[in-house]
Write a protein that binds this DNA or RNA. Structure first.
Length: 267
DNA sequence: ATGACGGATCTAATCCGA
């Protein structure tokens, strides 16, 4: 089977329904994983999204903050909505592909606050704890014999060319060595393959997020690659192509993140 | 090199994002 998978931190699903429609019309994802939907089930725009061609929707939301949703053109049975490491927020939802060919986990890893010190900053401690819990959740045993896809806003830019200045961001949350170590440990726990970096080599800059606070995001281009698509090893060769939809950052009233797309062909 | 912005909420000032 062939399908196009996209992940996008939408920063309010209600405010950006028009942009989702624009994206879907122009890029035609079959499965769209959203993060930071910022609403509960009662406020979630199910009808509008079904009309965009996604009759199958699973979401895990909370009022005001966080929240994830996975939309699909074809049936994707709900697998789980987990509180990773006991984190109380709505940060995970998993669905299965037809015939259990793979499980797609949509996650929103905590941002971690300003100060990169778990002693001083509880939010940073929570972020490291979440990464540790993910490593335990996907420690190889759980995914043994099963294909898994892990997508979402990881809030970590692991590689030097995942940020505009490796040196200047070493003490900035999202690119500190301790976060990168935690993420790398988690990646190795299940041999996750960063399929985007299979296509765009590590020596090339690649970003998926640009701050709202830049006077001119495009000119200053101080971006970070915070949004990721990983697969377990059996699926790494199933990815035919990928796109980072940079133009979406220039759309009217945009999210600060842009969509990341991977095209899969499962033999 | 943090934050000049932006979103949600008990519609005003505050919390949060990264």
């Amino acid at each position: 089977m062939k399908f196009r998978l996209a992940t996008w931190n939408i920063n309010s699903v209600r405010l950006r329904l028009g942009l989702i429609e624009h994206f879907v019309t122009n890029y035609r994802p079959d499965i769209l994983c959203l993060q930071e939907i910022k609403c509960t089930e009662s406020a979630f725009p199910f009808e509008a999204l079904r009309e965009l061609g996604f009759p199958h929707i699973h979401m895990n939301g909370q009022p005001g903050y966080h929240g994830v949703a996975t939309l699909s053109r074809f049936e994707v049975p709900l697998r789980s909505a987990e509180k990773i490491g006991g984190n109380p927020d709505a940060r995970h939802i998993a669905v299965a592909l037809p015939d259990e060919r793979a499980v797609i986990h949509n996650i929103y890893i905590p941002a971690g606050g300003d100060i990169p010190d778990p002693e001083e900053n509880p939010k940073f401690a929570q972020k490291l704890g979440f990464l540790t819990a993910l490593a335990e959740r996907f420690d190889g045993r759980d995914v043994d014999g099963e294909n898994n896809i892990l997508v979402g806003d990881f809030n970590v830019a692991p590689l030097p060319n995942d940020v505009w200045s490796h040196k200047q961001l070493l003490k900035v949350v999202s690119h500190t060595p301790v976060e990168v170590e935690h993420l790398t440990r988690m990646q190795k726990a299940s041999n996750w393959v960063d399929v985007i970096r299979q296509v765009v080599p590590n020596d090339q800059k690649l970003y998926t997020w640009w701050s709202y606070r830049a006077a001119d995001w495009k000119t200053s281009n101080r971006g970070r690659r915070l949004d990721h698509i990983w697969t377990t090893p059996g699926l790494a060769n199933a990815v035919q192509a990928m796109q980072v939809v940079k133009e979406a950052r220039g759309w009217e009233q945009p999210s600060d993140h842009v969509p990341v797309i991977a095209d899969f062909e499962l033999k």
